[in-house]
């Protein structure tokens, strides 16, 4: 990495951090844009549910099918629901949901705000005496922060159902027994950190998508770049947050 590009990278990290902090300094002061927040929750949450749901179902199904032979080899087939549920709830469902959202929502926000920027719609809000940051950024970041945990919880449930289907392809597991074994293996310390980190995933996806769109430039080319880099940076941040989260849960002996 050349010194200049490293300097630019650090400058951008600083800018994104300042942008993310602005969410807290401006987001909790009136005027509150509840209507726009609800609209964004609908688009970010409800409209992403089919994609997240299908992906979660497939992940649960595939993980169960692929784990089964190894467990059978050790005569531990009865552990299948428990092992799958811990993997899905702790890691796979939250991270996969966040990555899907980084792709779908991050690019959507980056492209939408980017095109608003290049067609002067953000300037138009500003000259009409309205704070565009509050209307466009605060609502989207808030909606991402609130909706991605909801999507992750639903992904947990759907992927566990996928696991049940997977467990019944080769073997036979009773519905009640599957769920009993799945939940028996889970503890509160599995669920809580997994859900808490999804709030950070949502916040990061929202901030990066908005930042890239809000400071988009160079016409339509800039809009494409905004959408693209929003996905790349948001996906990378999801993994970095996941890495930090696992260290923290390890320190507090929650693993």
């Amino acid at each position: 990495m050349k010194p200049n590009s490293f300097k630019n990278f650090l400058a951008e990290v600083g800018d994104i951090s300042a942008f993310g902090w602005r969410f807290f300094t401006e987001g909790f002061k009136p005027r509150y844009e509840f209507g726009e927040l609800l609209r964004q929750c609908y688009f970010i949450g409800y409209k992403s549910l089919p994609l997240v749901g299908i992906t979660a179902f497939i992940m649960g199904l595939v993980l169960t099918i692929q784990s089964r032979p190894t467990l059978v080899e050790f005569g531990a087939e009865a552990w299948l629901p428990g092992m799958v549920s811990v993997s899905l709830v702790r890691e796979i469902a939250p991270v996969i949901s966040a990555l899907i959202c980084a792709g779908k929502i991050g690019s959507g926000i980056g492209a939408e705000l980017g095109s608003m920027k290049v067609t002067e719609q953000i300037d138009a809000m500003e000259v009409s005496g309205t704070n565009p940051f509050k209307f466009l950024v605060v609502t989207r970041v808030m909606a991402c922060t609130l909706m991605i945990p909801v999507l992750a919880i639903l992904a947990d449930i759907i992927s566990l159902y996928g696991g049940y289907m997977g467990a019944n392809i080769r073997g036979v597991v009773n519905w009640d027994l599957y769920w009993y074994q799945a939940f028996d293996a889970l503890s509160f310390s599995d669920l809580l950190p997994a859900i808490v980190k999804t709030f950070f995933f949502g916040y990061a996806i929202g901030v990066v998508g908005c930042y890239k769109g809000y400071y988009s430039s160079k016409g339509t080319e800039g809009v494409g770049q905004s959408a693209n880099s929003a996905v790349v940076v948001a996906s990378l941040l999801v993994f970095i947050i996941d890495l930090v989260a696992v260290q923290i849960t390890d320190i507090f002996q929650l693993t």
Partner: peptide
């Protein structure tokens, strides 16, 4: 103060800048 001043000053953009959504 700038926001209050902007209420008294209208601005018509070359690109119109109508909110698409």
């Amino acid at each position: 103060e700038l926001d209050r001043m902007r209420v008294k000053v209208g601005f018509l953009f070359q690109s119109n800048a109508l909110y698409d959504s």
